[in-house]
Simulated assay, not measured.
Amino acid sequence: MPRLLAVVALCLSLLTLSALQAAELRLALPAGKRSWDSHALLAHPQARDIEVSADVSYKRTMHYRAVPLAALLQGVQAGDHLQVVALDGFAAELPAAPLLGRTGAQAWLAVEDPAKPWPPLAKGKPSAGPFYLVWIDPQQSAIGPEQWPFQVSTIRLLAPVAERFPALLPDAKADAEVQAGFAQFQKNCLACHRLNGAGDAQFGPDLNLPHNPTEYFADAFLQRYIRDPQSLRRWPQGKMPGFPPEVLSDRELQQLIGYLQHMSKRKLPPTAQ
């Protein structure tokens, strides 16, 4: 029996290593479609060893072998819009300008070395690899936690969210605060959640169907929930991160809630879209 267990453990280790070696990043950009495997990216001429302080996913300083993301975004212009899709269905909607920036916050694609795997994100969970979008000096460009997608599988050029998903749009007569709330929703929520069935995320529940959170949370409790989800609903499988004031200011939080309240009166069943 011990020998059998040892053989099983060895097979599992080999399968894990094989999966890492086979990791592939898919790009669909103006220059065309291309795939990079982890070994090719580790050997990229612009790959560097970088230090990331206050890593969003690991909550500590981390060191990575990484490639400047701009070096991989051939043909992408500052006014373009990109979507970064993770293996678990997380779909970050990102304006291209910060990703291409050479000053201020700088975006890097960290690449997990099959021979030196990163630590798990938590007990019983995988690592952030094989590819992880990390930032140096994120505070200089107000980069939020949803702009740090890990376990990345695909980066693609798409039309802006408002063009692709009109069911997300507030009424054209909505005031500037609601419009600003829509921007906050795109930045902080759309990577995990759909609304009115619209969006590409496959991670969290729809935030308008069948019910909008403003319909079942008192305002103060909704604010508290967004700030620290586990403070109201504590369970081991909870995945929603908190949004402290340094990530989402009090005014931005009110704008986001204002957008959700507005959209609670604009429910559009998926069959009607």
Rank of each mutant, 00 (worst) to 15 (best):
Q77M: 05
Q106V: 08
L42P: 06
Q223F: 00
T103L: 04
D200G: 14
T271F: 11
D113L: 07
G197A: 07
G199W: 08
N208Y: 00
F90N: 01
D88T: 05
P45E: 15
A9N: 06
S153D: 08
S38W: 14
Q223G: 07
R65H: 11
L27R: 13
R3W: 10
Y259Q: 09
P244V: 07
P145Q: 03
P269L: 13
H81F: 08
L190Q: 09
A183M: 10
G242V: 07
P205K: 02
P205Q: 02
R251T: 03
V67C: 08
H44T: 13
C192V: 12
L100Q: 13
P236G: 08
S264R: 08
Y216I: 01
L248D: 04
E93L: 09
F217Q: 00
K59Y: 09
F131N: 01
V56N: 01
Q230S: 10
L195V: 06
T271D: 12
G129H: 03
L25Q: 10
M1V: 14
R102E: 14
A107R: 08
P160C: 03
S57E: 11
R34W: 13
Y259P: 01
G204S: 02
L94G: 01
G104F: 02
E246V: 09
V152N: 00
A78K: 12
D206L: 00
S53W: 09
G75E: 06
D113A: 09
F150Q: 03
E246N: 11
P2K: 13
Q223S: 04
H63F: 11
A272W: 14
Q139R: 12
L169E: 05
S18T: 12
L109V: 03
Q230H: 09
F131R: 05
A272I: 01
P244N: 10
A6T: 09
T214H: 00
L14Y: 11
K125C: 01
N188K: 05
L256M: 02
Y132E: 05
A22G: 12
Q202A: 10
K123R: 15
P45H: 15
L42V: 12
R194Q: 12
A92W: 12
L209N: 02
A47Q: 11
F150V: 04
Q184D: 07
A92K: 10
A22W: 15
I257K: 05
V178T: 12
L69I: 10
P45M: 15
A174M: 04
P130R: 11
V52P: 14
S38V: 15
R266I: 05
N196Q: 04
L222E: 03
D250Y: 01
A22V: 06
A97V: 07
N208G: 00
K173L: 12
C11R: 14
P130D: 08
K123I: 12
Q147M: 06
L69Y: 10
L207M: 04
L5G: 13
S53C: 06
P213G: 03
P117V: 08
A198Y: 13
K173I: 02
V56M: 01
H81K: 03
L42H: 11
L94E: 03
S18V: 01
Q77E: 15
L99M: 10
R102S: 09
A66L: 02
V84M: 04
V8C: 10
L268P: 00
P2C: 05
F182T: 03
D137S: 11
Q179S: 09
R34G: 05
D137N: 14
D206C: 01
W36I: 11
A174D: 09
I155F: 02
